[in-house]
Protein backbone atom coordinates (compact mmCIF):
# COMPACT_ATOMS: atom_id res chain seq x y z
CA UNK A 1 0.00 0.00 0.00
CA UNK A 2 2.83 2.41 0.73
CA UNK A 3 4.50 4.17 -2.16
CA UNK A 4 7.65 2.58 -3.60
CA UNK A 5 10.80 3.58 -1.68
CA UNK A 6 12.80 5.01 -4.55
CA UNK A 7 14.90 8.12 -4.14
CA UNK A 8 12.41 10.40 -5.89
CA UNK A 9 9.48 9.36 -3.69
CA UNK A 10 11.49 9.56 -0.48
CA UNK A 11 12.89 13.02 -1.18
CA UNK A 12 9.52 14.23 -2.37
CA UNK A 13 7.53 13.00 0.64
CA UNK A 14 10.04 14.21 3.22
CA UNK A 15 10.31 17.62 1.56
CA UNK A 16 6.55 17.99 1.37
CA UNK A 17 5.99 16.97 4.99
CA UNK A 18 8.73 19.32 6.20
CA UNK A 19 7.35 22.20 4.12
CA UNK A 20 3.81 21.78 5.41
CA UNK A 21 5.01 21.38 9.00
CA UNK A 22 7.20 24.48 8.86
CA UNK A 23 4.30 26.45 7.40
CA UNK A 24 2.07 25.35 10.29
CA UNK A 25 4.76 26.17 12.85
CA UNK A 26 5.38 29.56 11.28
CA UNK A 27 1.68 30.33 11.45
CA UNK A 28 1.30 29.25 15.07
CA UNK A 29 4.44 31.13 16.05
CA UNK A 30 3.18 34.33 14.46
CA UNK A 31 -0.16 33.85 16.18
CA UNK A 32 1.26 33.19 19.65
CA UNK A 33 4.33 35.44 19.79
CA UNK A 34 2.35 38.46 21.00
CA UNK A 35 0.46 36.60 23.79
CA UNK A 36 3.73 34.90 24.88
CA UNK A 37 5.46 38.29 25.19
CA UNK A 38 2.47 39.64 27.11
CA UNK A 39 2.46 36.64 29.47
CA UNK A 40 6.19 37.03 30.17
CA UNK A 41 5.86 40.76 30.75
CA UNK A 42 2.89 40.18 33.08
CA UNK A 43 4.96 37.69 35.07
CA UNK A 44 7.89 40.08 35.39
CA UNK A 45 5.64 42.97 36.38
CA UNK A 46 3.91 40.78 38.97
CA UNK A 47 7.31 39.94 40.50
CA UNK A 48 8.36 43.59 40.51
CA UNK A 49 5.08 44.53 42.15
CA UNK A 50 5.82 42.02 44.89
CA UNK A 51 9.35 43.25 45.67
CA UNK A 52 8.81 47.00 45.44
CA UNK A 53 6.16 49.21 47.04
CA UNK A 54 3.39 50.58 44.82
CA UNK A 55 4.86 52.12 41.73
CA UNK A 56 3.34 54.29 39.07
CA UNK A 57 5.95 54.48 36.34
CA UNK A 58 6.74 51.70 33.90
CA UNK A 59 9.85 49.70 34.99
CA UNK A 60 12.77 50.02 32.58
CA UNK A 61 14.87 46.92 31.93
CA UNK A 62 18.61 47.53 32.11
CA UNK A 63 21.74 45.55 32.86
CA UNK A 64 25.06 46.15 34.55
CA UNK A 65 28.26 44.16 35.15
CA UNK A 66 29.53 43.82 38.71
CA UNK A 67 32.63 41.71 39.50
CA UNK A 68 32.50 40.06 36.09
CA UNK A 69 28.86 38.98 36.35
CA UNK A 70 26.12 40.59 34.34
CA UNK A 71 22.99 41.47 36.30
CA UNK A 72 19.63 42.36 34.79
CA UNK A 73 17.62 44.84 36.79
CA UNK A 74 14.51 46.96 36.47
CA UNK A 75 14.73 50.61 37.37
CA UNK A 76 11.52 52.06 38.68
CA UNK A 77 11.98 55.85 38.78
CA UNK A 78 11.07 57.34 42.14
CA UNK A 79 10.82 53.95 43.86
CA UNK A 80 13.95 51.85 43.52
CA UNK A 81 15.40 48.86 41.77
CA UNK A 82 14.28 45.27 41.24
CA UNK A 83 17.50 43.36 40.75
CA UNK A 84 17.67 39.79 39.46
CA UNK A 85 20.42 37.85 41.17
CA UNK A 86 21.49 34.23 40.62
CA UNK A 87 23.74 32.15 42.88
CA UNK A 88 24.45 28.43 43.24
CA UNK A 89 22.06 26.86 45.72
CA UNK A 90 21.97 23.31 47.08
CA UNK A 91 20.41 21.66 44.03
CA UNK A 92 21.30 24.13 41.27
CA UNK A 93 20.99 27.81 40.46
CA UNK A 94 18.81 29.88 42.75
CA UNK A 95 17.44 33.03 41.15
CA UNK A 96 15.92 35.82 43.20
CA UNK A 97 14.43 39.18 42.44
CA UNK A 98 15.45 41.65 45.12
CA UNK A 99 13.66 44.95 45.55
CA UNK A 100 15.85 47.72 46.96
CA UNK A 101 14.43 51.19 47.47
CA UNK A 102 16.30 54.42 46.81
CA UNK A 103 17.58 54.60 50.39
CA UNK A 104 19.25 51.20 50.08
CA UNK A 105 16.71 49.35 52.22
CA UNK A 106 15.52 45.94 51.02
CA UNK A 107 11.76 45.98 50.45
CA UNK A 108 11.11 42.34 49.64
CA UNK A 109 12.55 39.34 47.83
CA UNK A 110 10.94 36.76 45.62
CA UNK A 111 12.27 33.46 44.22
CA UNK A 112 12.07 33.38 40.43
CA UNK A 113 13.44 29.87 39.95
CA UNK A 114 15.18 27.25 42.07
CA UNK A 115 16.03 23.56 42.21
CA UNK A 116 16.16 23.11 45.99
CA UNK A 117 14.95 19.98 47.79
CA UNK A 118 11.15 19.86 48.23
CA UNK A 119 10.20 20.33 51.88
CA UNK A 120 13.67 21.52 52.89
CA UNK A 121 15.42 24.17 50.80
CA UNK A 122 12.31 24.75 48.69
CA UNK A 123 10.78 26.33 51.79
CA UNK A 124 12.71 29.49 50.87
CA UNK A 125 9.69 30.19 48.64
CA UNK A 126 7.01 29.73 51.27
CA UNK A 127 8.51 30.03 54.78
CA UNK A 128 7.14 33.43 55.81
CA UNK A 129 9.36 33.81 58.89
CA UNK A 130 12.42 33.32 56.69
CA UNK A 131 11.34 35.59 53.82
CA UNK A 132 9.87 38.33 55.99
CA UNK A 133 13.07 38.87 57.96
CA UNK A 134 14.54 40.56 54.87
CA UNK A 135 11.76 43.14 54.63
CA UNK A 136 13.18 46.46 55.71
CA UNK A 137 16.69 45.01 56.07
CA UNK A 138 19.47 47.59 55.85
CA UNK A 139 22.53 45.79 54.43
CA UNK A 140 24.76 48.70 55.47
CA UNK A 141 23.95 48.06 59.13
CA UNK A 142 23.16 44.32 59.32
CA UNK A 143 25.40 41.68 57.78
CA UNK A 144 23.72 39.54 55.10
CA UNK A 145 24.93 36.10 56.14
CA UNK A 146 23.49 33.26 58.19
CA UNK A 147 24.15 33.33 61.95
CA UNK A 148 26.53 30.37 61.57
CA UNK A 149 28.75 32.54 59.36
CA UNK A 150 28.66 35.49 61.73
CA UNK A 151 25.77 37.31 60.06
CA UNK A 152 22.25 38.02 61.24
CA UNK A 153 20.10 35.89 58.91
CA UNK A 154 18.10 33.17 60.68
CA UNK A 155 18.50 30.14 58.43
CA UNK A 156 15.69 27.77 57.49
CA UNK A 157 15.94 24.70 59.74
CA UNK A 158 18.08 22.00 58.09
CA UNK A 159 18.62 24.15 55.00
CA UNK A 160 21.71 26.17 55.81
CA UNK A 161 23.12 25.90 52.30
CA UNK A 162 19.94 27.26 50.72
CA UNK A 163 19.72 30.03 53.32
CA UNK A 164 23.37 30.88 52.70
CA UNK A 165 22.73 31.08 48.93
CA UNK A 166 19.62 33.21 49.50
CA UNK A 167 21.60 35.65 51.65
CA UNK A 168 24.45 35.73 49.13
CA UNK A 169 22.00 36.48 46.31
CA UNK A 170 20.64 39.45 48.27
CA UNK A 171 24.16 40.62 49.13
CA UNK A 172 25.09 40.47 45.43
CA UNK A 173 21.97 42.44 44.55
CA UNK A 174 23.01 45.03 47.12
CA UNK A 175 26.45 45.35 45.52
CA UNK A 176 24.68 45.93 42.21
CA UNK A 177 22.66 48.65 43.91
CA UNK A 178 25.86 50.26 45.24
CA UNK A 179 27.41 50.15 41.78
CA UNK A 180 24.30 51.80 40.34
CA UNK A 181 25.00 54.86 42.44
CA UNK A 182 23.62 53.91 45.83
CA UNK A 183 21.89 56.58 47.85
CA UNK A 184 23.39 59.66 46.34
Amino acid sequence: MAAVSNLKNMVLSLTLVCLVCSAILGGVFAMTSAPIKAAEAAKTNASIARVLPDFESEPAKESVTVDGTEYVYYRVPGTGYAIISTVGGFGGPLTLMVGIDEKGIICNTVVLSHSETPGLGAKCQTDASFIDQFKGWDPAAKKLAVTKDGGEVDAITASTITSRAYSAAIANAYSVYLKLGGNE
Binding site: A2, V4, S5, N6, M10, S13, L14, V17, C18, I24
Partner: peptide, 19 residues
Protein backbone atom coordinates in the same frame (compact mmCIF):
# COMPACT_ATOMS: atom_id res chain seq x y z
CA UNK B 1 0.64 6.61 5.87
CA UNK B 2 -0.57 5.21 2.50
CA UNK B 3 1.58 7.64 0.50
CA UNK B 4 4.73 7.65 2.65
CA UNK B 5 7.49 5.35 1.34
CA UNK B 6 8.42 2.70 3.93
CA UNK B 7 12.08 3.63 4.19
CA UNK B 8 11.36 7.18 5.37
CA UNK B 9 8.27 6.57 7.46
CA UNK B 10 9.99 7.08 10.84
CA UNK B 11 11.47 10.51 9.95
CA UNK B 12 8.12 11.60 8.50
CA UNK B 13 6.25 10.53 11.64
CA UNK B 14 8.78 12.22 13.90
CA UNK B 15 8.43 15.49 11.96
CA UNK B 16 4.63 15.30 12.26
CA UNK B 17 4.79 14.56 16.01
CA UNK B 18 7.42 17.24 16.64
CA UNK B 19 5.24 19.77 14.84
Amino acid sequence: APVVPDKVHIPVYIVVIAT
